[in-house]
Nucleic acid binder design. Structure first.
Lengths: 123, 123
DNA sequence: GTCGTTGCAAAGCGTTTGCAGCCTA
DNA sequence: TAGGCTGCAAACGCTTTGCAACGAC
């Protein structure tokens, strides 16, 4: 990742402005508002490059292809709205994980996903 | 799902005997010990049929294709071993989820995955 | 014998890669 | 102007589907 191309700039801007994790396809649509010729392969290549540079982080939710969000937000989890399919960040962590870890198992990390309706869809 | 074929019997047996969630490929390999001619398409078709019948449940972990386990075990979560890649069931639940649910959001359910080393791999 | 089920091969779908041309530095 | 980057199209891996043959009931 050495050059600052129009495509890369559009992708970074879309990720920053969205404020929530984006799928490659969502990202393509958003970034195409700046660079109409943008191809999906370029999106995937830049996602990988940005992730290797630590600029973004993959958000992997069960049963879904990865979404991506700007990195450096500290430990958090996600809320997946069943109605609009959007993913939100949530702060906090239920903790108390060692009590559910089986005997002899070494716990290294955890993931945690909430499902339901976001405030907009619940209304 | 009306007929009790050799293939379906082999698939059910493999799922029951494994005791932990299996991927379609793992299942194919196990069930082929009974029915050598078994094809992957048949595995996928039977997984769907067994799931629709409520006989099995999909176990979706972040970033992984679905695994399948025998249904009816009640609420539980999973531990994914980073070394052997196997998935174990864990009992219990950290609870206390409403405290991390944002204002105005309606919580319907949750998923929860532990990562680390299983007892065999930790030794 | 019927028709649900199977195995194969082809089709889908999301993601990755090869390659020639483009454009940033 | 060099070579990193892009867009296109082909390749890939996993899952689904079409179809003729098979076999459970």
């Amino acid at each position: 990742m050495q050059r600052d191309t129009r495509q890369r700039r559009a992708i970074r801007t879309a990720l920053k402005e969205a404020g929530h994790p984006l799928s490659p396809k969502e990202l393509l649509e958003l970034a195409r508002q700046d660079v109409t010729s943008l191809g999906i392969a370029t999106v995937y290549r830049n996602l990988r490059a940005l992730e290797e540079d630590g600029w973004i982080e993959a958000v992997e939710l069960p049963g879904d292809p990865p979404r991506y969000e700007v990195a450096g937000k500290g430990h958090h989890h996600h809320f997946h709205c069943r109605k609009c399919d959007r993913v939100y960040e949530v702060e906090g962590c239920p903790g108390n994980l060692s009590s559910v870890t089986p005997e002899g198992f070494e716990l290294e990390s955890h993931e945690f996903v909430l499902y339901g309706r976001c405030d907009a869809c619940a209304a």
